[in-house]
């Protein structure tokens, strides 16, 4: 295999890993606050649809992005209402959100565009175009580093760079700010936060709002940057893979970057090599597709260290005497 094809696989790793990374960070904020969020998938799907629809209608990818974020935020608010305010079961609320998103995007899409639930193909300013970083073309011929800079580092949409910047930003917020301290505390022991005179409900809603924004960006990236338009069920389980990556990362931002890029890499390889022939046996494509889930089971079974979730995760907070 040539050097160029390595670079090219890594390049698609970044492209395919970015939505996972954004969704994973969304899940990180929400689960660190003690709210399980399996609705990542649904929020991404809604955002993907709305951003493509608005981008197509207005011709602006940025307006599309805002619409995507808004849609995702509405779904976050529904999740918060059900699981924080009314103390419902967070998993059931998440499943409901996924089902609602899956149905409503197709229904509205079909009524709006009459293209089987999808949007028409986006072009021009309705899409986030790949950015060429300074000197990318000039340095292309430098051996080794040149192609890495020109192909791998340069040439992505602005949302990719944003996603990568969000990793240190998340780390900083989590470990260096008052909000981060309270967020981590509320996911571990909400009673400690409550008795310290800080509102548990407000903190959890704030976390869900951040998750909503990040899922919105992730969904918009899918339909207006990675692809050119929305197709039904286009998230294709990415929300769940992001959750798997979150467990893999043990709810930490830098590890989340690692695990989502690893899962992105698996996706890139399986697209490029549908079957991998090892000589003695042929690894089918389905195996590569399922590898993230298999690895998650392995992690959860405790083979690769312990993945300890936030202690108060999944439990609505009820004041007690």
């Amino acid at each position: 295999m040539s050097f160029e094809s390595y670079v090219s696989i890594l390049d698609s790793t970044v492209r395919l890993g970015t939505p996972l990374l954004l969704a994973c960070l969304a899940g990180l904020f929400s689960e660190r606050s003690g709210v399980f969020d399996i609705g990542l998938e649904g929020k991404m799907l809604v955002a993907a649809f709305l951003s493509a629809a608005v981008a197509y209608t207005t011709g602006s990818a940025w307006l599309g992005l805002l619409a995507g974020i808004a849609g995702s935020l509405v779904f976050s608010a529904i999740h918060g209402l059900a699981s924080i305010t009314f103390r419902g079961n967070q998993l059931i609320s998440g499943v409901a959100i996924n089902m609602l998103a899956s149905g409503i995007t197709v229904l509205v899409g079909q009524n709006w565009f009459h293209q089987g639930g999808g949007t028409p193909a986006l072009s021009g300013a309705a899409r986030f175009r790949d950015m060429t970083l300074p000197f990318a073309n000039e340095l292309r011929d430098v051996p080794f580093l040149g192609p890495i800079y020109a192909e791998l580092i340069s040439g992505h949409s602005v949302l990719v760079y944003l996603a990568f910047l969000l990793v240190p930003a998340t780390w900083w917020v989590l470990y260096r700010t008052r909000f981060g301290l309270r967020l981590r505390a509320v996911g571990e022991n909400p009673a400690a936060v409550d008795t310290a005179g800080v509102s548990v409900v407000a903190l959890r809603y704030a976390a869900l709002a951040i998750a909503g924004v990040l899922c919105g960006i992730a969904g918009s990236y899918l339909s207006t940057a990675l692809a050119a338009g929305f197709g039904r069920e286009m998230t294709a389980g990415r929300g769940y893979i992001a959750l798997a990556a979150l467990i893999f990362a043990k709810w930490r931002p830098w590890q989340a970057l690692g695990s989502t890029m690893f899962f992105g890499f698996l996706a890139a390889v399986s697209i490029r090599y549908p079957t991998i022939d090892l000589g003695v046996l042929v690894i089918p494509n389905e195996f590569m597709d399922n590898l993230p889930y298999i690895l998650t089971v392995v992690v959860l079974a405790g083979f690769v260290g312990k993945a300890i979730p936030p202690r108060a995760g999944g439990e609505p907070y009820v004041k007690e005497r």
Binding site: R178, L181, R182, N189, V193, R311
Partner: peptide, 19 residues
Amino acid sequence: KLVQNFTVLENVVLGAEEG
């Protein structure tokens, strides 16, 4: 009402941070 995996310091300032 303590956060088990926080340090003593972090538990003390929680909710009473300066900025």
